[in-house]
Design a protein around this nucleic acid. Structure first.
Lengths: 392, 392
DNA sequence: CTGTTAGCGCGTTCAC
DNA sequence: GTGAACGCGCTAACAG
C-alpha cells in the first residue's frame, strides 16, 4: 500500500529543510505520497467523538446526546463525557454536522461595498436578528463587481447556507432565481423585487429621490445636478427617477451626471468638472446618490475660492451615514432605517425557510426621511442648534 | 418504521395551512416525524454526484475527476458530464468536500468593530491576498465583546477554517494558543505578540502615540489630554505609553481621560466634560486614541462658543480613516498601512499553514506615519493646499 | 437512559 | 481512462 511510514516522512521533511533547493525536483515527484501521509498524521491528531467516547467509556451516541440533547443523558454521564471533551480538547466538526443536517447554521450576506457604513449597519441589524434564530451571519463584499458577486453566490450555495441576503448588482435576477429554486432561500436587500418573485426589503428610493430634489427646490434652487452611477444599479436609477419626477413637478431643470461609482474620489472628480465650467453653466444644487459621493463633492467645492455652500451650490446626499452630520459643512441627507432593514431581511428569510408556514413572499418597503442640515440650509446663525438636534 | 408516507405529509401540511391555529397542539406532537419526512423529501430533491453520474452514464469517480482533475478525463466524457451537471443544476456540497479534505478553503477574520473603516481596509487587504491562494475570507465582528469574540472563535474552529486572523480583545491569549495547538493557525492582527508565540502583524502603537504628543508639543501645546479606552485593549495602552514617553521627553503635562469605547458618541461626551471645566483647567491639546473618538470631540468643541481649534485646543486622532481629512476641521492623524496589514497577515498565515516550510513565527511591525492637517496647524491661510496634499 | 449502526456527499484509492 | 468501494465525523433512529 503506502510505501512510506511516519519515520520516512519525518526524515524526508528534515532532508527538505536542509537541502531545499537541491532536492526540489524530487519534491515534485514524491509530493503526493508525502502530502497524503501528512494529511493522515493530521487526522490522527484530530480528536473525534469516537475518541471522546472511548475516553469517557461510553458510546458515540451518548457523546452526541450530551452535545445535542443534554436532557436525554443522566447528569453523571454528562459530567464524565464533558471531562473527556475538555481533556482531549475536542471540537465539533461543523462540516460533518452540516453534511448530516443538510443545511448550515449560517446565513450569507452579500453587500455591494463593505466600506459603505450603510451596509455595516444593515449587517449589524441582520446579525442581531439572526442571533435569535441561533444563526450566524457571514459577510461578504461583492465590491460592485459582477464576477465577485457571482463567485460569492456560488461559494454560499456550495456551503449550503441557510439563506442568502443579497444586495444585488445585476438587474437580471434569473441566475439568482435558479439558486433559490435549487433550495437556498434568497431575500433581496435594499432592492425591491419588481415582479414579486423574491421577498425583499428596501427603501422607497423613488420617494427618496423625490424628497431630495423637492427640498432643493424649496430652498430656492432651480438648476439641479443629479450625481450618481452606474445607473445599472437599480437603487441609483430609482433615486434618479424620483429626482426627475420632483424636478418636473416643481418645474426646475435637472441635469444628469453619471459617475463610475459612489466614492469620495468620484465625487471630487465630478465637482472638479463642475468647477471647470463658467459660472453661469454651473448648477445651484447637487443631489448625490450617496453620502460618500456627496462628501467628495463637498471637499472639492469647499476649497474652491468662488463657491459657497449652500448659497451658490446646495448639496444633498443619501444614506445619512454617521459622518454626514460630521462633514465640513454638515450634510443634508436622506436617511434609511439601515438596522431595521437588516433585521427585517432576516425575518423574511426565516419565513421562507420554515416549511410549516404557508408564507407568501413579501416586499417590505421602508419610507426614507429627509434630514436637513447646513449643506442646504440658507443661513445657519445657530450652529449649536444643529448639533443638539443630531445628538438627541 | 415510518408511519407516514409522502401523501400523509402533504395532506398534513395542507391541513396545517388551512387551520393553523386549531391544530397547533397537534403540530407539537407530530412535528418530529413530519420534520424528518420533510427533510427526506428535501434530500430527494438535492442532486449529488451520483445523479450526475447516472445522467451522464458514467461513474461517480469520473464526475469527481471532471471537477477536480480535468486532465485525467477524456475530452469527450468531460463534455458529457458537464452537460449533465448543467442540466441537473448540480452544485458541489462544500461540507462533504471539506469533511473529506479535513480543512475548509476559507479563512476567518475577527475584527473588533466592523463599522471602523480601518478594519474594512484590513479586510480588503486580506481578501486580495487570500485570493492568490484560492481562499476566501469570512468577516466577523467581535464588537469589542469578550463573549462574542469567543463564540466566533469557536464557530471558526468548528468550521475548521484554514486559519484565523484575529484582532484580539483579551490580553490573555492562552485560550487562543489552545486553538492554535489544536491545529488552526492563528495570526494576530493589529497587535504584537509579546512573547513571540504567535505570528503577528501590527503597527508600532507606542511610536504612534509618541508621534502624536511630540507633534502637539512641537506646535506649542503644553497640557495634553490622552483620550481613549478601555485600557485593556493593548493598542490603546501602547498609544498611551508612547504618549507618556513623549510628554516626559518634551517636558509637558499629560492627563489621562479613559473612555468606555472609541466611538463618536464617547468623544462628544468627553468633550462635554472638558467644556464644563473652567477655562484654565482645560487642556490645550487632545490626543484621541482613534479618529472616531477625535471626530466626536471635534463636533462638540466646534459648536462651543469659546473654543477654537487648533488655537485653543489642538486635536490629533489615530488611524487616518478616510473621513479624517473630511471632518469639519480636517483632522491630524496617525496613519496605519491598513491594506498592507491585511495582506501581510494572510502571508504569515500561509507560511504557518505550509507543512514543508521550516517557518519561524514572525512579528511584523509597521511604522505609523503622522499626517498633519488643520486640527493642529496653527494657521492655514491656504486651505486649498491641504486639499491638494490629500488628493495626491 | 445507553449502545449500535447506517448513511449524509464527496474525494480517493486501486483494480480493471 | 474508468468504475466500485471505502471512509471522513457526525447525527438520529432504533433496539436494548
Amino acid at each position: 500500500m503506502n510505501r512510506f511510514n511516519l519515520c520516512d516522512v519525518i526524515y524526508f521533511v528534515e532532508l527538505v529543510q536542509k537541502f531545499k533547493s537541491e532536492v526540489c525536483n524530487q519534491i515534485v515527484t514524491i509530493a503526493p505520497a508525502v502530502a497524503s501521509k501528512l494529511t493522515q498524521i493530521g487526522r490522527e491528531m484530530a480528536v473525534s467523538v469516537r475518541d471522546v467516547a472511548r475516553r469517557a467509556g461510553v458510546s458515540v451516541g451518548t457523546v452526541s446526546n450530551v452535545l445535542n440533547s443534554p436532557d436525554k443523558v443522566s447528569q453523571k454521564t454528562a459530567v464524565v463525557v464533558q471531562k473527556a471533551i475538555d481533556s482531549l480538547g475536542f471540537v465539533r466538526n461543523d462540516a460533518a454536522r452540516q453534511l448530516r443536517a443538510g443545511k448550515s447554521r449560517s446565513i450569507g450576506l452579500v453587500v455591494l461595498d463593505i466600506r459603505n457604513p450603510f451596509f455595516a449597519e444593515v449587517s449589524r441589524g441582520a446579525e442581531e436578528a439572526a442571533k435569535d434564530y441561533g444563526l450566524s451571519v457571514l459577510f461578504a463584499n461583492s465590491d460592485e463587481d459582477f464576477d465577485r458577486e457571482n463567485s460569492l453566490l456560488v461559494l454560499f450555495e456550495e456551503q449550503r447556507v441557510a439563506g442568502i441576503l443579497l444586495s444585488p448588482l445585476a438587474s437580471d435576477l434569473s441566475e439568482i432565481s435558479r439558486i433559490r429554486d435549487r433550495g437556498t432561500p434568497v431575500v433581496l436587500v435594499d432592492r425591491k423585487s419588481r415582479n414579486k418573485t423574491f421577498s425583499s426589503v428596501s427603501v422607497d428610493d423613488v420617494a427618496g429621490g423625490f424628497l431630495a430634489v423637492e427640498h432643493l427646490s424649496q430652498v430656492g434652487k432651480k438648476k439641479i445636478v443629479f450625481a450618481g452611477g452606474p445607473l445599472e444599479i437599480e437603487q441609483i436609477a430609482d433615486r434618479l427617477k424620483g429626482a426627475k419626477k420632483a424636478a418636473e413637478a416643481m418645474g426646475i431643470k435637472l441635469e444628469l451626471a453619471v459617475t463610475k461609482n459612489l466614492t469620495v474620489l468620484e465625487g471630487r472628480a465630478l465637482a472638479a468638472e463642475i468647477l471647470s465650467r463658467p459660472k453661469k453653466l454651473r448648477p445651484d444644487g447637487i443631489f448625490a446618490a450617496n453620502d460618500l459621493l456627496a462628501i467628495g463633492i463637498m471637499q472639492a467645492l469647499v476649497v474652491a475660492p468662488d463657491v459657497s455652500i449652500p448659497n451658490d451650490i446646495a448639496l444633498v446626499g443619501y444614506d445619512d451615514i454617521s459622518f454626514a452630520g460630521t462633514a465640513l459643512i454638515s450634510l443634508t441627507s436622506i436617511r434609511q432605517p439601515s438596522l431595521l432593514i437588516g433585521a427585517q431581511a432576516v425575518e423574511l428569510l426565516m419565513q421562507e425557510t420554515d416549511p410549516m408556514s404557508n408564507f407568501r413572499r413579501r416586499q417590505v418597503v421602508f419610507q426614507p426621511e429627509l434630514v436637513v442640515r447646513d449643506s442646504t440650509r440658507p443661513q445657519s446663525p445657530d450652529r449649536a442648534k444643529t448639533f443638539t438636534q443630531r445628538s438627541k
